[in-house]
Amino acid sequence: MPEPLLFVVTSRRGAGDALSGVVAAEFGAPLPPPGRIADCGEWRVIWTGRESWFFETAAVAAGSARARLDVLRPGARIVEVGDGYARFVMAGPAARERLQRLAPIDLHPSVFPPDAAARTVLEHIPVLLHAAGPDVIEALAPRSMAEDAARLLDG
């Protein structure tokens, strides 16, 4: 399987709706609203901020992934950032409990359901948390802090 790839896609000012239409047509689901994830088959789209999303894929080779995202131009800007992040996958109810102790945000399934995403801080480490399944939470942490993030999440 190819390495997971990660791109920041930002929309041209005021062109979010148009971009969402293109994404819906090309990827199968519109851009997700704040705090949410859109599942687009081979791709996962995560809201990360104002007019800003992560496009993530582990199923597409790098070259074709970049080519695929090119269809979003010129309404979108695309910045490849995969090397900047370390990915942690935490599964099982104990994992959610462990993560909840560290996270200032509420990770209860009623508040943070399987399509939720949020940027937060775990003991000074900035992370993007997203629920990838009923009992799976993934964290993207800065590459430079990967070693300490692993130590922290391992408890």
Partner: peptide
């Protein structure tokens, strides 16, 4: 970008971690 000049079309992405 967000408060002083929201009329400007500009996107910012921190890529400090992505590049060596």
């Amino acid at each position: 970008r967000q408060c002083l000049w929201p009329d400007l079309d500009v996107s910012l992405v921190s890529v400090t971690e992505a590049w060596a």
